[in-house]
Amino acid sequence: MPLPKRTCSSLIRLHREIPLPVPGKILVRKGQWVEPGDVVAQAPVRPRHITLDISRSLGLPAEEIDDYFQFRVGDSVTGQDILAGPVGYAQRVVRAPSAGKIVRIANGKLTLQIAGQPQDIKTELPGVVVDLIADQGIMIEMTGALIQGVWGNGRTYFGKYLLLDSREDSELKINTTDSPLKGMIVVGGICDLPEKLKLAQEIGVGGLVISGLAANLYESAARAPFPVLVLEGFGQYPLSPQAYQILAMHSGKVMGLNARPWDWYSGKRPEAVIPLEPEEAPLATNQLGVIQPGQSVRVISPPVFGMRGTLVDIPGTRKFSNGILGLSATILLENGSESIFPLANLEFID
């Protein structure tokens, strides 16, 4: 049975795709090293279209106008080119309002496609280009620490990060005097007050990585102008010891923060990547983890949401205290107790 899998690794080799929004031009080659901010591709901005009523402008019926067109469908024109005419004593003409390509002439009307300026696609992670995906994007391989989360507000950022959390008190500590945090990714514990999100915005942080987010701040976090990544869940959940250890070890280094929402269909989760010097590291896989005793798991449902443990065995289908039936698993929890949970209420920790 496949379970959701979350990676929290101090050193791993990763493949990350940089997709183009629309087919475009790849500017890098396979094997090339790229740094954050490097332009790796160009994609045309979606063109817009304008339709000109040539028939009306020239004062001629649509069926009589064909001979007056100066261009044909597929032709490119520059601004002020005469599209149709001249007509009559006044030598009336219709000029192109801007450069573009004629995509249609019908019923006395002409539709012009106006291309936008190409958009530079930059990488937000350092690494080596390992694959070029036709005109759709590139694949980068990098080495670093990877911490995946459960929720993100859809924004991304790359910059230095600072861990503000201390193990004794797991609340996100951020205050008005924290101006050095401007442009930095702030990593903290639990964000449970709207003022903290507001302060983060006032300071101008580059991003926010938190262990727990109070559920009533969901909407504010979703609309925050900077990326927000929630690592553990909605509520009072401190950083896991594994995540804390990694984040504390590298605090002050740069982080690639991709707070995309978790997409079930593609399997992509929100994540924070800390690039490290390339060295031998296992390649992150998306392979199915085989359920077996000894595996690290996290409980993803009440009453002990977020608690970690080790899989002991799978005793089969069981009726839980409220009468719900489910395939169960015995877990040795981090607090030393042994409990039985539905298998569906667990996720693997890699």
Partner: peptide
């Protein structure tokens, strides 16, 4: 919110 993240989870409380 957690249910939306983990739709397969079962309500055991």
């Amino acid at each position: 919110l957690h249910k939306s993240l983990y739709p397969d989870s079962l309500p055991i409380t």
